[in-house]
C-alpha cells in the first residue's frame, strides 16, 4: 500500500467544542487506503466538524490527527498536499469559466504550468462536465456545481479524500457516476471518507461504515457484516388478511423483547430487527397460524437498522 503508515486518516480521541457546545467528544476514526469509509450520524453529530479538523481548517482541542502520516497541527502544509476536501456547502467563483476555475486551483496547488490544461480536461471528463468547457460557472446547475467541486477536490491527485455529503443535489445517474468514481479512486489506492445521509447508497459505495453520534464513535462496521446473512434488519410482511396478520404477529412476538410490529402499513406490517434465520422462523409460525402471507422482504437496509438502533434511545 502506498504512502507512509497504513491509514490515510488516523484520528484518536479528537475533541472539539464551540463555546459551551461540545461538537466532538473523543472521536476515533481510521480510514485505510484503498477503501471507502462512510461517516454516518444524525444532524449535529459532528461529522462536518470532524471533516474540518481532518481538512486542517479547524484545530482539535485535544487528540491526535494524522493525514497520510502527517500531524495536522505540526505539519498542516504536508497534510494539505495529501488531502482533497469537498465541503458540504461551498461557493464557486461565479465570474470564472469552468476551466479557469479548475486551472486556478491547479495553480494554487502548485501543479506545473504545462500540465495544467491537460489536468483540467481530465478532471472535467472525470466528472462529466467536458461539454461545459469555457462556460461560466454561474450558469451551472446545483448538481453540476457539486461535480465541479468534486473535480476541484481532486485537482492535485490527493491520496486522501474527504467528502462531506457529496451526493446531495445529484440526480440518480450522477450518483451512480459518483459511486463509480469513488470506487475507482479507492481501487487506485486512495483513502476515502464520505459523510452522507443516504444510507442505501452508502451500502453500495462504502467498504466500512463509522457511526457517529453526539461527537463520539458509536460503531465501526465492515459493510460486509451489515449486509451478510447475520445482519439484523427489519422485515416487511404482506398478507391477504391484514387484520389476522396483525393479531397473530402480536401473539407470536409477545414474548420477544425489542421486536415491535408496525401495523399501520396498508396490507401488511413491519417487524424486526431479525436475522434471516429469525425471519424464516417467524414466517413458519405465521403460516402455521393460517395467515395468508403473500410477501416477506427486508425493509430498508442493515445499515439503516444499525443507524436506527443507534438513534433509538434519543426518541
Amino acid at each position: 500500500m502506498a504512502g507512509r503508515g497504513e491509514f490515510g486518516v488516523e484520528a484518536r480521541g479528537v475533541t472539539r467544542s464551540f463555546g459551551s457546545v461540545q461538537a466532538l467528544g473523543g472521536l476515533d476514526i481510521t480510514v485505510p487506503y484503498g477503501q471507502v469509509t462512510a461517516l454516518v450520524g444524525p444532524n449535529g453529530a459532528g461529522k462536518t466538524t470532524l471533516l474540518l479538523i481532518l481538512a486542517t481548517l479547524l484545530a482539535p482541542d485535544a487528540g491526535l490527527v494524522r493525514i497520510a502520516g502527517h500531524d495536522v497541527r505540526q505539519s498542516p502544509a504536508e497534510a494539505r498536499d495529501a488531502l482533497g476536501w469537498m465541503p458540504d456547502t461551498f461557493g464557486v467563483y461565479d465570474q470564472l469559466t469552468v476551466d479557469e476555475y479548475l486551472a486556478f486551483f491547479a495553480d494554487a496547488y502548485g501543479l506545473p504550468k504545462q500540465e495544467r490544461p491537460r489536468r483540467v480536461r481530465a478532471l472535467l471528463s472525470l466528472v462529466h462536465l467536458e461539454d461545459r468547457l469555457g462556460q461560466p460557472v454561474h450558469a451551472l446547475s446545483r448538481g453540476q456545481k457539486q461535480r465541479l467541486g468534486m473535480a476541484r477536490a481532486l485537482v492535485h491527485r490527493p491520496r486522501v479524500l474527504l467528502l462531506d455529503e457529496p451526493a446531495s443535489g445529484l440526480d440518480p445517474r450522477s450518483r451512480i457516476e459518483l459511486r463509480d468514481l469513488l470506487r475507482s479512486l479507492a481501487a487506485d489506492g486512495a483513502a476515502i471518507l464520505v459523510s452522507s445521509h443516504i444510507l442505501s447508497e452508502l451500502e453500495e459505495i462504502a467498504d466500512r461504515v463509522v457511526l457517529v453520534d453526539n461527537g463520539r464513535t458509536a460503531g465501526d462496521h465492515a459493510m460486509a457484516d451489515l449486509t451478510g446473512a447475520e445482519a439484523r434488519v427489519r422485515w416487511r410482511l404482506r398478507s391477504l388478511d391484514p387484520g389476522l396478520l396483525t393479531t397473530t404477529l402480536a401473539r407470536v412476538l409477545d414474548g420477544q423483547a425489542g421486536l415491535e410490529a408496525t401495523a399501520d402499513l396498508p396490507g401488511g406490517a413491519e417487524v424486526g430487527p431479525l436475522t434471516e434465520v429469525g425471519a424464516a422462523a417467524l414466517l413458519a409460525e405465521l403460516v402455521a397460524a393460517d395467515v395468508p402471507v403473500t410477501g416477506l422482504a427486508p425493509a430498508g437496509s442493515a445499515l439503516e437498522s444499525a443507524y436506527l438502533a443507534m438513534t433509538e434511545n434519543r426518541r
Binding site: L57, R80, Y93, F105, Y109
Partner: peptide
C-alpha cells in the same frame, strides 16, 4: 460569506 475562502485555505496558498 460566499463559501470560497475555505477552499483557498486548503491549497498551498
Amino acid at each position: 460569506e460566499r463559501g470560497t475562502l475555505a477552499t483557498l485555505q486548503v491549497t498551498r496558498l
